[in-house]
């Protein structure tokens, strides 16, 4: 029971996150923006992928954006982490001094 007390907020939080209408994105509500991305002169397959997703399925585009952002955050984090490690600094401890 004690253990449950420790983790219940996490469950409530997850449940809330599953109710999209209840959660508003940081930065205010946005109206749907109808833009058509022009793929007629684009040759790169990578750009075409994004343009097609944008033009055809807003939901999937949102999902791809989230996945892509998460992927970038993790991979760039790992890369810059390696760079920081090479500096030879101690990156695992710090003193807590307020003043």
């Amino acid at each position: 029971m004690k253990r449950f007390y420790r983790i219940w907020p996490a469950f409530v939080a997850l449940a809330m996150l599953l109710v999209p209408e209840l959660v508003m994105a940081a930065g205010g509500k946005a109206e749907m923006l109808i833009v058509v991305a022009d793929n007629r002169t684009v040759e790169s397959g990578w750009f075409k992928f994004w343009i097609d997703a944008y033009n055809t399925d807003p939901f999937m585009f949102g999902l791809y954006c989230t996945l892509f952002t998460g992927f970038l955050g993790v991979s760039l984090g790992l890369i810059t982490d390696q760079i920081m490690k090479r500096t030879g600094l101690d990156l695992t401890s710090r003193k807590l001094v307020e003043h």
Partner: peptide, 17 residues
């Protein structure tokens, strides 16, 4: 909150990836 925001703004077509 940022990841959730990314999703909703993505659905609304407001992200330049």
């Amino acid at each position: 909150s940022g990841l959730y925001g990314t999703f909703t703004y993505g659905v609304k077509g407001r992200i330049e990836v």
